[in-house]
Nucleic acid binder design. Sequence first.
DNA 1: TTTT
DNA 2: TTTT
Lengths: 168, 168, 168, 168
Amino acid sequence: MLNRVVLVGRLTRDPELRYTPNGVAVANFTLAVNRPFSNQQGEREADFINCVIWRKQAENVANYLKKGSLAGVDGRIQTRSYDNNEGKRVFITEVMAESVQFLEPRGASSNSNQGQGNDYYGGGPGPSGNDFGRQQNNNQNRSSGGFNEDPFANDGKPIDISDDDLPF
Amino acid sequence: MLNRVVLVGRLTRDPELRYTPNGVAVANFTLAVNRPFSNQQGEREADFINCVIWRKQAENVANYLKKGSLAGVDGRIQTRSYDNNEGKRVFITEVMAESVQFLEPRGASSNSNQGQGNDYYGGGPGPSGNDFGRQQNNNQNRSSGGFNEDPFANDGKPIDISDDDLPF
Amino acid sequence: MLNRVVLVGRLTRDPELRYTPNGVAVANFTLAVNRPFSNQQGEREADFINCVIWRKQAENVANYLKKGSLAGVDGRIQTRSYDNNEGKRVFITEVMAESVQFLEPRGASSNSNQGQGNDYYGGGPGPSGNDFGRQQNNNQNRSSGGFNEDPFANDGKPIDISDDDLPF
Amino acid sequence: MLNRVVLVGRLTRDPELRYTPNGVAVANFTLAVNRPFSNQQGEREADFINCVIWRKQAENVANYLKKGSLAGVDGRIQTRSYDNNEGKRVFITEVMAESVQFLEPRGASSNSNQGQGNDYYGGGPGPSGNDFGRQQNNNQNRSSGGFNEDPFANDGKPIDISDDDLPF
DNA sequence: TTTT
DNA sequence: TTTT
């Protein structure tokens, strides 16, 4: 059935790349998408939309996007649920990205402390043939929080990701 | 910023219509949207996507759609959060419908126990000028759950809806 | 780059199925999509949007949709041009459908003179495993117009379709 | 009925701003949207999609976008037809933009010969309150072609635009 | 805790 | 618990 989402926004933090036991890459990131209208206090708000992307594009996202990057997403809304550590069912609504477009011009927002430039590919959803040989989690400093409110925090539940989550 | 969602699916239950203290109508409903692919067990799954709609269209939705109705939604993803009764912050991702299209043909799925036929208006997002004089919650029998997991359950928190939630 | 179209409308005539020299199926159809607003004369107008779909789904469309069928389309806008018989370049804008959803309930609008019922598959973009063994053009009576206004009329230009038109 | 288009692409030339007899602004522009796949010759192609936008946003587009600017569009497909100077009916398919997002960072692609910087407003579809006092056609050098292939060329048919074209 |  |  029809289920289509298109977003343009900025990453609220570096993407988080992980691998399933079978070696399939998956990246999570959150887009801040500014609303086109102001609230009753006259302020512009944003929506913070969790996104997931799989396989090669997950690695591209991890390599080329970082906190603050402007990106476009074309995908579907997916919902899932899991039981949290208090035995309570938690429902998740997120965007399964089918393609991601890097909208940051060459060298933009590269005032990063990571020395890892992210390039701009107007012509497509990412680089082709550029494999940097580093697809590990570039976000390893997000771990070990004592609480578990963010379903995207993978800290306490590595078991939560499995090849069964692959939606195709 | 670009934020667009289009869905076609079936209501998982009757829509829930409420009013803000200022008398603004708002309806919540959940669309079951079947996935176009099968999972590893060969089963077709669905995504259950919470939707909100405001004002006149909320009343149309409450009057013309019910559990099982096929409907199309054009809108935006919105996120919000609230503190639940355990003082924990809960994050909600839902679709703010800007228009809803009734896709059920005349008399279809009218095997309802409510004797309230829902019509089909291919020409637009709903009836114009048909006011049945009954926009009250047609779902009043959903109440009194002891728990509070579903943010769409309005039972214990009428205060949760205010005119401040109006996004425009 | 982002290019996404979602439509719901009714076929203005039976779909037109053809095959490339290499045997790849392609179907053309036009969706009438009613506008959600009225014009200055208070009339509701419609947009007539040409769509193309390839391969197996082209055959499904030809088998299950006909004039008047309600359908949803998810796809991309594509543009192309060709030189007409007067040596003038003609520009075409059409929707490359990536998936089509049949929104007609079982037996609906089957008041057809073709005795070819079209079914309703809420669960997906088409039938799986139902091959009627007849994918030929079910529209052969559209031919031989002396004029050429409709770019979808293939009458005088069988050469216009080749495997090169396959966009992937 | 559902009719939704989302595009990200680059303007193929400066936008063309005009006014109806009643003083309503309307701008036309064409987006080049690169395809995410290559053709049989291994080349990346683009789709050239004609867009229209009305009123205040038309003036914003004319003031802030120019040839080469990266922009996002959210809108609907509209079709119309007119009789050309040879008495032949011409069918037009274009995108009625409901909002346009400027995706060019500050000062980007300002290697223009017009000395007219275009700014970047991540926060919305355009500037509010910045009126440059010049909304006239900034494209007056496009006229007087002897042929009429581009339906957007307004050269010979100023009558073609009227307030009746306003779709709302 | 879900639709057909 | 957020982007510019």
